[in-house]
């Protein structure tokens, strides 16, 4: 029969399924070239994995999402993850949609797959979204802890970077408190431009400190983060130039 165009295997398969011959129906469906028709029937026949595979084969992301959505609702989370994690395209789609909608799902997924780097990245993203610093600190701590027992050099590097970020934030907080004066809002004269340092990069922090001629504090940041002398000189040059500009 196959090889002849124009025959709807979907209809034949549906008939077979209605007769209760599931295996035959599945077999027949292999000849149906239109995935759009194949997949819904497979789903209704509860041939979930085959349906997912066929959807992926078709390349139609909408169809893949459709199957994934269906599976997600139907299966317990753990087995849902097991189904998708052998299929990279499916994993990618779940990840990308969960990134916009369902962060917790993503966290579970990374945990189950032991993808520590991704997991810690996710926590870092959340830290960035926190409105208050103390909450951000908590998230950062978690992100760092997530990597703590990994030997992978990339993870170790990342951990170092995260810890540095925490340290930097604490320093910035400290400087803000010292330099912005009392919480009443009365800033000392000459510091009218003294906006908050929190959120700036290490370089920018030094730059601003130098511009406001807090040389000692700047030097402290330098030694704390091991900024090379050359870089520090550049920063000082730029800061001095811009300070002259403004006053």
């Amino acid at each position: 029969l196959h090889g002849r165009p124009g025959i709807s295997f979907e209809e034949i398969a549906r008939a077979a399924y209605d007769e209760g011959r599931v295996r035959l129906a599945t077999e027949l469906l292999n000849y149906e070239p239109r995935a759009g028709k194949q997949v819904p029937l497979l789903l209704s026949m509860k041939e979930d994995n085959i349906a997912l595979d066929k959807a992926i084969e078709s390349g139609d992301t909408d169809l893949i999402f459709h199957v994934l959505h269906h599976l997600h609702k139907k299966l317990p989370l753990a087995s849902f993850f097991r189904v998708i994690n052998t299929r990279p395209v499916a994993t990618a789609l779940v990840e990308s949609s969960a990134l916009d909608q369902d962060r917790n799902l993503l966290k579970d997924l990374y945990y189950q797959d032991d993808r520590r780097l991704d997991g810690s990245n996710l926590l870092l993203t959340e830290a960035l979204a926190q409105p208050s610093l103390s909450a951000a600190h908590d998230k950062l701590k978690l992100a760092s802890k997530y990597l703590s027992d990994s030997r992978d050099p990339t993870a170790q590097f990342q951990r170092q970077a995260l810890d540095d970020a925490t340290k930097l934030l604490r320093l910035q907080e400290q400087f803000d408190k010292d330099l912005l004066g009392s919480p009443g809002g009365v800033t000392s004269p000459g510091l009218t431009r003294g906006t908050s340092l929190v959120g700036l990069s290490t370089h920018d922090t030094i730059f601003h400190l130098l511009r406001q001629s807090h040389t000692k504090r700047a030097a402290k940041v330098q030694s704390e983060f091991k900024i090379p002398d050359k870089t520090f000189t550049w920063l000082r040059l730029r800061a001095l130039v811009s300070a002259r500009h403004w006053t």
Binding site: L124, T125, F157, A161, L162, A165, L168, S201, T202, H203
Partner: peptide
Amino acid sequence: RHKDLEAFKRTVIQAYGPQHILTLS
């Protein structure tokens, strides 16, 4: 080279902010 890459990563993070840990990854 691994060594160079790590050095550059560190410099980028220090120069442009810790949020770029995500950028680099």
